[in-house]
Design a protein around this nucleic acid. Sequence first.
DNA 1: ATGTCC
Length: 479
Amino acid sequence: MELIQLDPYRWEVPQDHERGMRVPARIYADDRLMAAIRNDQSLVQVVNGATLPGIVGASLAMPDMHFGYGLPIGGVVAMDPDTGVISPGGTGYDINCGVRLLRSNLVEQDVRPRLKTLVEELFRRIPTGVGSRGKLKLSPADERAVTLRGARWAVQQGYGSEADLACIEAGGCLEGADPDKVSSKAFERGRSQVGTLGSGNHFLEVQIVDEVFDEHIANVFGLFAGQIAVLIHTGSRGFGHQVCTDYLVVMERCMERYGIQLPDRQLACAPFRSPEGQDYLAAMRCAANFAFANRQCITAWARQVFEQVLGMGPRDLGLALVYDVAHNIVKIEEHLVNGTRRQLVVHRKGATRAFPPGHPEVPPQYRAVGQPTLIPGDMGRASYVLAGTQRAMEETFGSTCHGAGRALSRHAAKRLAKGHAIQRELEDRGIIVRYTGRATLMEEIPEAYKDVTDVVNVVHAAGISRKVARLRPIGVIKG
DNA sequence: ATGTCC
């Protein structure tokens, strides 16, 4: 297909009517990242996204893009609510997979002597792995409350504070969730999974702020070089997975009736205003709220572990929430399209909201500098804190990348990891790792990922977010 | 990502 380089960081596949494209596809990458993308199936997927009814602007892909279900991971598509569709594959299986960052009053020498104990206690207290079950015993009524109230439910149970809620995307609770649109099977799978980490690239890391790129914004976010921080990466576990599974079936059944034809059945979708579309939206919001509550509970336990292991009180620790972002979600947002304010159905799938300075949805304490945007990398290299920009608002519906992005398939990663003592190799570099699944650790070997620094440099240079700080892991727990 | 095939 035709792929035109617009500038050093932007590429376009022009609208091709024969392919059914309604808009162009646009990809953010430099030459090196594009070399990996060019012959990848994910390029076909971002082009396929351009065929979705009602799509506005362009089908977008971030530099961490890689192959996913239907749309690439790293994709952003925005639809007109009156003429467009909503697509479960445009959000992904792990609804509201996301990340939250806690800052602290600590520096490395405060934790290094107790680091092994700290990581072991975090691992003991926070359930990890596929099928992991938490210590919370929820009644069906409790679980419904989780889906309606999100992180607020967790705070009301004593897990964290009101101050935390102010530092979560959407306040940790999406309006319009309807548990009656969620299957009993999803509720059964989720019942024991609030407050669990899961598997794959999900993790809790103890990190050090390794380099500050923007002193002013870092200061506003409460970050400084040498500081200890905690990054928590998890989602809606089996609950969201089941919601996605259920609604893919619903959409596949109704697409023909709505006269929707697409190049890939994995893009299954329904008109946004249809009953099926609205039901998915309400169920997706339940799963998003489940994930916000999940991260909130884990946060409370992480704080307790720090207090016990370091023998410090909460005020001295200062483990305050910097921010919590969703990576896989559908949001109804207002955007300027060719000079006109419009409500749009924004699908972010492996992409992060990056709202600019002055945006009303950025918490007041950060509003002058833009929304904190959290980019987890692999467990051996780094993660980043970025800030949202006006250019993101103008070009990417206020979105940026979400992580390093896989360079190797899980199978290829396992093959590469054979013969590596991953845990020991990381420990030799001062990174303590505790994990549940050996196979997962192999799939997550740092070399399986693109270098998150390359990805972040592209979104920074393209102007769709601004580099604030780099963090490096010293303690990791994984599923 | 996921009770990694009910």
